[in-house]
Simulated scan of single mutants.
Amino acid sequence: MTIRTPLFCGTALAQRIERVEAQLVAQASAAARARRADTLGFAREIAGGVASYAEADSPFNKIAGLGFGGVPTEAELVEVEQAFRTLGSPVPVELANLADPAVGELLTGRGYRLTGYENVLGLSLDGLSAPEPPPGVEVRLCRADETDTALDLLVEAVLNPDTEGVASAEDFPRDVLGNAIRDMDSTGTRRYLALIDDVPVGTGSLRIADGTAYFAGAATSVQHRRRGVQTALIATRLADAIAAGCDIATVTTAPGTKSQQNVQRRGFDLLYTRALLQSS
């Protein structure tokens, strides 16, 4: 019997994963400005991370990747807070528990409050064979004219979340979510559709950067859950990640959810947790 060694995550690997996340946020934020053909918003570096404002209520309005490139000065943080405030937004921060603890001390000292958590999981792809998707579910790349179909599946998933685990505190309007999908896709993110009997029943995305395969945007229609849709999406994206030469795959989930259980069944290990903070 072969015993698999769980993937260990130290600060170096966490920094790499957080850097990929920060790059996505910055590029999607820039894509939002290009889409609107204006200069509203920003994406600026801060202490190894990125502070981004894409548009009102966007999931790309946040500080990501903080705490792996030093501790921001109070003056730097004040400048970023003012930039968000000018646009009528609070300052959401995703802070990994492997980041410099001094960052958390700085934020809580300035009145930031905890709003939730999310888990980052990973799977080493070194020597891993491409898995076979379960029968009965077809997975293929989403065509440009099927973006609304993928959006419908994502919105349905948001409105009918997992009943297990900790509920996500994030809730985005449909039009904003649609813009975010298109902005992500314009940065090179691959979007997939899962179909049963030629009917779209699920979606998921894959972003490849720095040898890292980042899984996101997973959703399954309510009536087709527990039928292997997410297993098929995971298998197809893993196969594509291996073919692209990635050495690690990562995914972010809410704690204790069916989504976390699905990826752990495919061999993903819990690497670290992010605290979700917001300015008061």
Rank of each mutant, 00 (worst) to 15 (best):
A243H: 03
G127I: 05
G211Q: 13
I181L: 15
G256K: 08
G188C: 11
V120W: 00
P135N: 05
V120Y: 01
A232F: 07
F84I: 01
R266Q: 13
T11E: 11
Y117K: 02
Q82D: 15
E45A: 07
P90Y: 00
Q23V: 09
F215P: 07
L206A: 12
G228L: 05
D185V: 06
A213T: 07
P133F: 00
G122P: 13
T212I: 15
T5G: 04
V222Q: 11
V20E: 07
E138M: 11
A249T: 07
D269P: 15
T189C: 14
L195K: 04
E55L: 04
F84N: 01
L270I: 01
T212M: 13
R191Y: 13
V78Y: 02
A22G: 14
G217S: 15
D269E: 13
F8L: 12
I17L: 15
G188Y: 04
L77A: 08
K62W: 02
E132R: 13
L159N: 14
D247V: 05
T2W: 11
Y214T: 15
T2M: 14
T189D: 05
L95M: 03
V80M: 12
V139W: 01
V91T: 11
E146V: 00
C9D: 04
P134R: 09
G217I: 06
E18F: 03
M184Y: 03
V201A: 05
Q27C: 09
T250S: 13
P161N: 08
L40F: 01
A244T: 05
Y214M: 14
Q223P: 04
F42P: 15
G49K: 10
G165S: 10
Q15F: 02
A144R: 11
M184W: 01
R36T: 07
R143V: 00
G202M: 03
F8N: 12
L87N: 01
I242E: 06
L125M: 06
Q15L: 02
A99D: 04
T149C: 15
R227M: 08
R44V: 15
Q264S: 14
T253D: 06
I196V: 14
S124K: 05
V25F: 07
G211N: 10
G228K: 10
R16E: 14
A243E: 13
L271D: 03
E94I: 00
T73V: 06
R35N: 06
V263F: 07
N97S: 11
T86L: 11
G65K: 12
G256M: 10
R110M: 09
A157F: 13
A254C: 09
N262P: 15
A157T: 10
S58N: 09
P90D: 09
D197T: 00
I242A: 04
P90F: 01
G188P: 15
R35C: 01
L87W: 03
V20W: 04
T86P: 00
P92D: 00
D145G: 03
E138V: 10
E55S: 07
V25T: 01
A96I: 00
S58K: 08
L114Y: 09
L98G: 12
A219P: 14
T189Y: 00
P90A: 14
L95P: 11
Q261R: 14
R16I: 04
L125C: 08
A219C: 11
